[in-house]
Design a protein around this nucleic acid. Structure first.
Lengths: 193, 193
DNA sequence: GAAGGCATGTAAATCGTTACATGATTTA
DNA sequence: TAAATCATGTAACGATTTACATGCCTTC
């Protein structure tokens, strides 16, 4: 039976205290979604697979009429997670960033539209950085008080990375702006001299 | 007919001078693979789709016995690419980074293994940054002389981003190291005092 | 009492990679 | 002459998302 990163994501979330599939998905949305998104339709089959493999156990945790399962890592689950964390081969990150593809082809645009595109991309990165800082880091800091330091570390790394990209694009924006102002070949007819 | 980022990637590569499907794939591997990887099995069907949509034209370009097709963007293709570059809605980047998932769960490891993990991740980012600087930026700089500035800009952004991540992890490494040395509660039995 | 969140799953569709299949040409 | 590269495609597989289907519980 083959375990993949999503398997370990589910396993790890159990270790951090999530019990139901729903709770795992909710926790992941508030912590790991920026570097490994996961949908509910992945969580439930994965939990079944992990149970089959003896890495987690399931018990009933229904509240009245509302059905709920509570999962718990087994000792073997813990050991398997540790072995994965220690294993030397780490798959390279897979990125699909439409924004960078556009920027890559931006030579096709006139200077004004190039500037506008860069402006939008900078805004995107800034927004994500702020989102992580306001929505994710506070939660991670709470976990920090329960001897969990790395969720906060990763959140800060993610936020700083996006902020760095925003700064970089801000600099590019200024450079492009300066170049546009320095080349009056095609003056904007809507602007008065 | 729905056009996706891979469609525009193929279209854009044609614009940058690639003619055959094989050449498009090769160019993409040396320029866009870090933010939008693409396999040959995507390129050929995509070219057929683009031809059907009237955005590219195909002509035979065989050398002796070796079959080859040469594709060219049509005027409609150019306009479609421009419209996409200008369109305001940009899908957020999709990232799947196993390294960050491991780091996120690193609290499960003893301090020494945490340090080792961070060291490996820093090395990864450093390697990618160097790879971009030695393999991709020189090529992009060549294109720079043909009025194509953005391939080089994007390559530099990518490299700087990875280098920033490597620095950040290097700092974390030092912090962890300092903490390990400052807490002699669990001395390493293999080390002599 | 209506809306929204809690809770669990399955089915279909989509997207992408790897493997397969073939053969010419160039380079070491 | 063997290996690498050029060149084009298809088929099978795997991973992930969206949509479907259902119903309880809590809050406004």
């Amino acid at each position: 039976m083959k375990l993949t990163p999503p398997s370990f994501l589910v396993l790890g979330m159990l270790r951090l205290g999530a019990r139901s599939g729903y709770a795992i998905k909710k926790t992941a949305d508030l912590s790991t979604r920026n570097f490994w998104p996961m949908s509910l339709a992945q969580v439930y089959p994965e939990l079944a697979r992990l149970e089959q493999a003896g890495l987690v156990t399931r018990r009933d945790d229904s509240h009245g009429e509302r059905a709920r399962s509570a999962y718990k890592m087994t000792e073997r689950g813990e050991q398997t997670l540790l072995a994965w964390l220690r294993s030397p081969k780490i798959a390279p990150a897979q990125v699909r960033d439409e924004a960078l593809v556009r920027l890559f082809f931006a030579d096709a645009l006139p200077p004004g539209d190039q500037l506008e595109l860069v402006r939008r991309l900078r805004a995107c990165d800034g927004t994500v950085a702020n989102q992580i800082r306001t929505e994710i880091i506070p939660l991670a800091d709470q976990a920090n008080q329960h001897d969990l330091r790395f969720p906060a570390i990763v959140a800060r790394l993610s936020a700083d990375l996006h902020a760095y990209a925003a700064d970089w694009l801000g600099q590019l924006e200024q450079d492009l702006q300066a170049q546009i102002e320095a080349s009056p070949q095609v003056p904007d007819p809507t602007r008065q001299p």
